[in-house]
């Protein structure tokens, strides 16, 4: 197996006085979609934010494509062709859809073919192209946020709970879009709580609890093993209550 695109070793992150990540070891293989599962507050979002440099790790190493990126500034990490779709979607409400996309294309105007490909994935964006993004529905904002992350070819995309609060019909469209991205061999790290959605897309899976990775394996194996599912996800559900 080739060297993974992204790996975290013993990563700790503190936010103020709170110790959120307590030694995360995570591997994201090249060209695959890795799903990060876990209950609320397990540290999934913090993991993504730490990778992105939005919260600096207090300990541990983060290696991306052979270079250490822990502690670097967010823009420098993003320039390594890492896209980020935050849980809040981070859509600029005051800017139009077109302006949002124009900012996302940092290196120059996006080419027509790429835009057409994106419009194929998310037709709503074309319809609302000149509208302030603040007027879009939740699902449309999510599409815009993902579209922004892929308007330039990326080595890695970090996506935080894209299905949260989104209507089922739109989720179906999202699954199709992610499959399309997988076909283009984009490496994706996806944080999810929706197991069915995760299972339909994931190649590998990692489960987090209390700031640590508690399980790593293939999605196929986890999807087939209902006992393991109950132990990992059911257990964490019980712990949650």
């Amino acid at each position: 197996m080739s060297e993974p695109l992204l790996s975290l070793e013993g990563v700790h992150t503190h936010i103020g006085q709170y110790h959120i990540l307590q030694g995360v070891d995570l591997v994201v293989p090249r060209g695959e979609l890795t799903v990060l599962l876990g209950r609320n507050g397990a540290g999934k979002t913090t993991t993504l934010r730490t990778i992105m440099g939005l919260w600096p790790p207090s300990r541990g190493t983060i290696t991306f494509d052979g270079q250490s990126i822990g502690g670097r500034a967010t823009p420098d990490i993003a320039r390594l062709r890492i896209g980020y779709v935050p849980e809040s979607m981070g859509v600029f409400a005051d800017l139009t859809v077109a302006e949002n996309m124009r900012l996302a294309a940092r290196l120059g105007p996006p080419d027509a073919a790429r835009l057409d490909w994106i419009f194929g994935l998310f037709p709503a964006l074309k319809r609302f192209w000149q509208l302030p993004a603040g007027l879009l529905s939740g699902g449309q904002k999510q599409m815009l946020s993902i579209a922004r992350a892929i308007v330039e070819p990326k080595a890695l995309i970090l996506i935080d709970e894209p299905t949260k609060g989104i209507a089922p019909a739109i989720i179906e469209g999202m699954i199709a879009a992610f499959k399309e991205l997988k076909r283009a061999e984009t490496t994706i790290l996806l944080v999810e709580q929706n197991f069915r959605f995760a299972a339909s897309l994931g190649d590998t899976v990692a489960v987090m609890d209390d700031g640590r990775i508690v399980h790593r394996g293939t999605m196929e194996a986890l999807a087939a093993d209902s006992v393991l599912q109950t132990r990992l996800l059911g257990l964490s559900l019980a712990a949650h209550q």
Binding site: M52, T74, P75, L95, L103, R106
Partner: peptide
């Protein structure tokens, strides 16, 4: 202008502008 868009975007959400690779 693009600088103007960045300023407007930055006023709204500084973190996201940085996550798009701009040194704000």
């Amino acid at each position: 202008t693009k600088v103007g868009l960045l300023i407007r975007a930055g006023v709204e959400n500084r973190e996201m502008v940085e996550a798009l690779g701009y040194r704000i």
